[in-house]
């Protein structure tokens, strides 16, 4: 067994809050630059320029890329031969809390979803997975709620065709319209159970934008970009930068599909301990 202390985990998570919130992912920046250079509508091109300028200012001034520093979501891939000394969940939450305080990020977390009340910095949402090996990989995804609010999950009949699934995904983007800060990255989870499809949709946002991918992803991207929503809903060629689909086996009686939309400020950072 390889021992990893909770303190080391906490410190690493604190650093992830800085990296994720101040520095836009390189693949997202590349996607935005490509959208900017390909855009012909002058007003929309200016908006894309503002988005790129914003990322540069955030990095330089050590300001959050977006004031909605999200509900922090932490993916912990824990090697089965790693032994954690101390309280893992407490370490992750403490790391988030310390980072959000230290780097002046936003306290957007409400303790009681119905009673509401004062907001704080934690807890975050933790998805833990057991993997091979003796290391721990931690990924922080600060997920803003302008786009999280546009998430959708649907349980299709097992006899539903792919066209129905495609329509559901495209309609989810259309119903988000300009509200969730396009150009989007559209995360899709297909299969598993209702909860697992939703998790896959979120995990799909972690995959790097590559311009490659499945035929279905490319086809959906093309159709989404034909909707003409565009940055701030003002048209143009880039409603989405990418569509990422993650699939998993499912039950003979169903076909769960979930869509998790990310705004253009798709932020995440990882570390391996």
């Amino acid at each position: 067994m390889r021992r990893i202390s909770a303190l080391k985990i906490k410190t690493a998570v604190t650093e992830l809050t800085r990296r994720a919130n101040f520095f836009l992912r390189k693949d997202v920046l590349a996607g935005l630059r490509k959208a900017y250079s390909g855009e012909k509508n002058k007003r929309v091109k200016n908006i894309l320029k503002a988005i790129l300028d914003n990322a540069a200012i955030a990095a330089k001034e050590k300001l959050a890329i977006c004031q909605d520093t999200g509900m922090p979501v932490v993916f912990a891939e824990i090697g089965q031969e790693a032994s954690i000394v101390g309280d893992l969940k407490a370490a992750i939450n403490k790391g988030v809390e310390e980072g959000y305080k230290k780097y002046c990020l936003r306290n957007s977390i409400i303790g009681d979803p119905l009673a509401r009340g004062k907001s704080g910095f934690s807890p975050c949402v933790i998805h833990a997975d057991i993997v091979k090996g003796d290391k721990i990989k931690l990924t922080l995804l600060p997920k803003g709620f302008g786009c999280e609010n546009k998430s959708q999950t649907k349980m299709f009949r097992p006899t539903a065709g792919i066209e129905e699934v495609k329509k559901f995904i495209i309609d989810a983007v259309k119903s988000a319209g300009p509200d969730a800060c396009p150009p989007y990255v559209v995360g899709v989870g297909i299969g598993g159970t209702a909860d697992y499809a939703a998790l896959l949709a979120k995990k799909a946002l972690l995959r790097k934008i590559s311009g490659k991918g499945l035929q279905l992803e490319r086809e959906l991207l093309k159709q989404i970009n034909k909707t003409g929503i565009g940055p701030m809903g003002l048209g143009g060629a880039s409603t989405a930068l990418a569509v990422h689909i993650e699939s998993y086996p499912t039950h003979i009686a169903g076909l769960p599909v979930a869509v998790n939309i990310s705004c253009h400020a798709l932020r995440s950072a990882s570390v391996v301990l």
């Binding site: 503002a50 914003n54 300001l63 977006c66």
Partner: peptide
């Protein structure tokens, strides 16, 4: 105004 551009 510019959405998702809080730093700017």
């Amino acid at each position: 105004t510019y959405a998702g551009c809080g730093a700017l």
